[in-house]
């Protein structure tokens, strides 16, 4: 198919806007830039509100585009990056299944967004460990949803295996949500889990030491009491 030529007017208008940018336009752009710095989630929030009303291809496309943009911006942020990865997966899943998507998916999406907003806009109010805790809670919600979807799909597959066509099976494989553990688990999350393991291990060691000390003490008292009893 031959590509339709873009009209010259688009190019002319764009060039004219570049040359004849007036102070009013400049201040608008500066305000937008400032807004983007102080509230970088504005566009994402607006799209998420649209999802509440209607799950259409257009809305989901806008959502995924905005998530991709933010994901790119926060690529090196070990706390923020997993939030965007989860939103991306949820968005692709909801886009694919729309009304047939698990009802919990939109709830989890809203929850992940709310946690992201809280974490991102907190500045220094939240400590890094608090942010990690928030992230872990959302990861848990995400995993629970994943389990439910997989369970539902497996039972559905068993019921309808006999009548399923090849194309349906292919479609089943092509689920856009990224459920792969290795790819879906970010490095920061693994680091946080390892930190927790170390913490729990050290807690247990301390507890064990305290218990041993307590047992020693108790045994010492009992043996003293025994000796006294025998003397009598």
């Amino acid at each position: 198919m031959a590509r339709k030529k873009a009209p010259i007017t688009d190019e002319v208008k764009k060039r004219l806007d570049e040359i004849f940018l007036e102070d009013d336009d400049k201040s608008d752009i500066e305000a937008d830039q400032l807004d983007a710095q102080t509230y970088p989630l504005r566009e994402l929030k607006s799209v998420i509100l649209s999802i509440e009303w209607e799950i259409s291809d257009e809305v989901m496309h806008r959502f995924l585009e905005e998530v991709a943009r933010l994901k790119n911006s926060y690529n090196n942020d070990r706390i923020m990056s997993p939030f965007f990865k989860m939103l991306d997966s949820l968005g692709r899943y909801i886009k694919k299944y729309k009304a047939k998507a698990n009802p919990g998916a939109v709830k989890v999406l809203n929850s992940v967004y709310a946690a992201l907003e809280r974490t991102l806009l907190s500045d220094d109010d939240l400590k890094a460990t608090e942010k990690e805790t928030i992230l872990l809670e959302e990861v848990q919600r995400f995993k629970d949803l994943k389990r439910k979807i997989q369970a539902g799909r497996e039972s559905g597959e068993e019921r309808g295996r006999a009548e399923k066509t090849t194309s349906e099976l292919v479609e089943g494989k092509d689920v856009s949500i990224d459920w792969d553990e290795g790819r879906g688990t970010p490095e920061s999350l693994l680091a946080a889990v390892n930190e927790l393991k170390v913490l729990i291990r050290s807690e247990f060691e301390t507890l064990r030491e305290e218990m041993l000390a307590w047992l020693d003490e108790k045994c010492g008292q009992e043996s003293k009491a025994g000796r006294k009893g025998r003397k009598k």
Binding site: P7, K13, L16, F20
Partner: peptide, 21 residues
């Protein structure tokens, strides 16, 4: 004051370029 001077200019250039094309 400059009100709509640029708007007028942009419009005529766009119309003219489109006509020339």
């Amino acid at each position: 004051k400059g009100d709509n001077v640029v708007k007028t200019l942009k419009k005529i250039i766009t119309l003219t370029m489109s006509a020339l094309e």
